[in-house]
Simulated assay, not measured.
Amino acid sequence: MVVYNELVAITAGAGLIGFARFLTRLIRGKSIESEGWAGFFGVTGLLLLALGLHTTVTWPFGGDGFEYANVAFGQPAAGFGALLLFAAVYLWRQRTPFADDPDAAGATALRALKPISWFIGALGLAMGVLAISFVRFQLGAAPPEEPISGRFGHLPILEALFLGGLWGVVALGAILFAVAQLADRAGLLLWAARAWVVGGVVFLLFGALNYYTHLGMYFNIAHGTSYLW
């Protein structure tokens, strides 16, 4: 089984943290280096869109009941990647306004995000339903060959609660962002950013840890070893 959810997780984490930071700077009227942010959103968006679409249409997670991972990981990654690419294109095109009048450009950027808020809210709703599904069906338990997390595979509710909570935090941020934009409740934007920072940090750490646990799992399977840590 060839998967790449490690890269998806750390890229999603970086994207969430970065967008939250960018949004906070917009709200507080701080300067925006448009070209730099466009590059950041372009790199993270391209990776997430490409890997998310590939997961969505080819279903590399297969067998042993892991098919759900194609839906839970691939589709949100593709959607988030497309949103980040939108931000990259917008910021690249607005290089001159951000350089000449950053305050006006920042206010315009917040208004420009209103239409896309419908899709952000829709993704948030989907992430929320996925969060419930993780817990309801106790999805996400690691196989016994996987170090660290595999030691708790006989208690599937633990990883289900972790993944459900993580997806839920990101969903909360997306829904708050959509409500803030579409209902003109600007005070909620900072709360959306805070939720995304929390979710982004956890995604980043979770993805980094998976490089260790997944390599250990492949090693255990290939060599018949039983490394637990």
Rank of each mutant, 00 (worst) to 15 (best):
V2Q: 11
N5A: 10
E6Y: 09
V8F: 02
G13E: 02
G18T: 12
G18E: 11
F19N: 00
A20Q: 05
A20T: 09
L23Y: 05
S31R: 14
F40T: 01
T44K: 03
T44L: 12
L46H: 06
L48K: 03
G52H: 04
L53T: 13
H54K: 14
T56G: 08
W59G: 08
P60S: 08
G63P: 01
G63N: 00
E67M: 08
N70M: 10
F73Q: 08
G74N: 08
L84G: 05
F86S: 00
F86N: 01
A88R: 02
V89Y: 07
R93N: 13
Q94L: 12
F98I: 13
A99N: 10
A104P: 12
A105G: 12
G106I: 05
A107G: 13
L110V: 09
K114G: 03
K114Q: 12
P115K: 08
F119N: 08
G121N: 04
L123A: 09
G128E: 01
S133I: 10
F134L: 04
Q138Y: 09
Q138K: 13
G140V: 03
A142R: 02
A142L: 04
P144E: 07
P144G: 00
P144F: 03
G150W: 00
R151V: 12
L166W: 03
A171I: 06
A171S: 11
L172T: 12
A174H: 00
I175G: 00
I175C: 02
I175Y: 00
I175T: 01
A178T: 04
V179C: 05
A183N: 05
D184H: 00
A186G: 15
G187R: 01
L188R: 05
W191N: 02
R194T: 10
R194E: 07
A195C: 08
W196K: 00
G200I: 12
V202M: 06
F206T: 02
H214A: 11
H214R: 10
L215Q: 13
G216I: 02
M217T: 06
I221R: 11
I221K: 08
H223K: 10
G224P: 08
T225W: 06
L228Y: 11
